[in-house]
Amino acid sequence: EFSMMFKHFDKDKSGRLNHQEFKSCLRSLGYDLPMVEEGEPDPEFEAILDTVDPNRDGHVSLQEYMAFMISRE
């Protein structure tokens, strides 16, 4: 189920989600993330990124995504 969600939000089929795609994916899974303006701080989402994209390369791989989802179950 999680990998299907990942593929759905991987719009460019790159095998990874940019942070915006990842945020959309989390919202569709029921995460209550506040709407913030582009460039505004988003501490809740930043905290999630610290876990799922610790190297802050700007992308979430399928492996990082799956590890995050399994840790939340």
Rank of each mutant, 00 (worst) to 15 (best):
E40P: 07
A67T: 12
R27L: 13
N18L: 05
N55F: 06
D53A: 02
D57G: 11
L62S: 07
G39P: 06
N18C: 05
T51V: 15
G30H: 06
M66K: 07
F9Y: 06
F45R: 00
L62H: 13
K23W: 03
E38R: 11
V52W: 01
F68L: 08
L49S: 00
Y65G: 13
R56I: 01
Q63M: 08
V60Q: 00
K23R: 15
P54T: 06
Y31C: 09
P34S: 11
G58M: 02
F22G: 01
E64S: 15
F68G: 02
R56T: 03
C25R: 04
E38A: 12
H59G: 08
E1V: 03
E37M: 12
S61Y: 10
M66F: 04
S61N: 09
L29Q: 14
P41F: 14
F45E: 01
L33F: 12
E37D: 14
F2D: 04
D42G: 03
L26Q: 00
Q63R: 12
R72G: 12
G58E: 01
A47R: 14
K11T: 08
S71P: 12
M66G: 03
Q63I: 08
R72Q: 15
A47L: 13
P41T: 12
E44I: 12
L29N: 09
S61G: 14
L29K: 04
D53R: 02
T51Q: 15
A67V: 06
A47K: 14
E40K: 12
I48N: 01
G15A: 03
M66H: 07
P43S: 10
E64V: 08
Q63T: 10
H19I: 04
K11M: 14
E37P: 14
M69Q: 05
E73S: 14
D57P: 01
D12A: 15
V36Q: 12
D42N: 10
D42E: 12
Y65A: 12
L62G: 03
G58R: 01
E73L: 07
P43A: 10
V36K: 14
E64M: 10
G39Q: 08
V36Y: 12
S61H: 09
A47F: 07
E40V: 11
R56G: 06
R72W: 07
S28C: 12
P41E: 13
R27M: 13
L26W: 00
T51M: 14
S28L: 10
E37L: 09
K7G: 06
R72C: 09
E44R: 12
E44H: 12
L17H: 03
L29T: 07
M66R: 07
M69D: 04
V52E: 00
L49I: 07
A67I: 06
F68H: 04
P41R: 13
N18A: 07
E73G: 15
D57K: 15
R16P: 11
E46P: 01
S28W: 07
A67F: 06
Y65K: 02
Q63Y: 06
L29D: 04
N18V: 03
D12C: 10
Y65L: 06
S61D: 11
E37K: 15
L49F: 02
D12L: 14
L17A: 00
D32Y: 11
S28D: 07
V52C: 11
E64Q: 14
D12T: 08
R56A: 05
E38M: 11
G39L: 07
P54R: 09
R27A: 11
H59V: 11
V60S: 00
N18G: 09
Y31E: 08
L62T: 04
D50P: 00
E37C: 11
E44M: 10
M5R: 15
E64G: 09
F68E: 02
P41G: 11
L33D: 04
E38P: 14
D57H: 14
M35V: 14
D53S: 03
I70S: 04
E40T: 12
D42A: 04
S61I: 05
F2L: 14
Q63F: 05
R72V: 06
L33A: 05
E44A: 13
S28M: 10
E37Q: 14
M66P: 02
Q63G: 11
E38C: 09
A47P: 06
V36I: 13
F6C: 04
L17E: 00
E40Y: 10
A47C: 12
A47T: 12
F6Y: 06
C25E: 02
F45V: 02
Q63L: 07
E38N: 13
M69N: 07
Y65H: 07
S3P: 12
G58C: 01
S71R: 08
E44D: 14
E64K: 15
D12E: 09
G39R: 06
R56C: 04
V36C: 10
Q63W: 04
F68Q: 03
E38F: 09
E44F: 08
N55W: 06
H19D: 00
F68V: 03
F45M: 06
E44C: 10
S24Y: 06
E37G: 13
S61W: 07
A47W: 07
E38W: 07
E73M: 10
L49E: 00
L62N: 05
H59T: 13
L29V: 10
I70N: 08
Q63N: 10
Y31S: 04
R72E: 07
L62A: 07
D53Q: 02
M35Q: 15
H59C: 12
E46A: 08
E46T: 07
L17R: 01
V52M: 04
A67S: 14
T51D: 13
S24T: 08
D32W: 09
Y31W: 15
L49R: 01
F22T: 02
D57C: 14
Q63A: 13
D57T: 15
L49Y: 00
D10Y: 12
H59Q: 10
D57N: 14
P43N: 13
S28H: 13
M35H: 15
F22L: 12
M69E: 05
M4A: 05
L17S: 02
P54N: 03
E44W: 08
F68I: 03
S61K: 12
L29Y: 10
V60H: 00
F22I: 05
E73F: 13
M66V: 08
T51L: 13
E37N: 12
Y31Q: 06
M66N: 10
N55Q: 13
L49P: 00
E37F: 06
E37A: 14
D53E: 01
G15C: 02
D10E: 08
L29M: 11
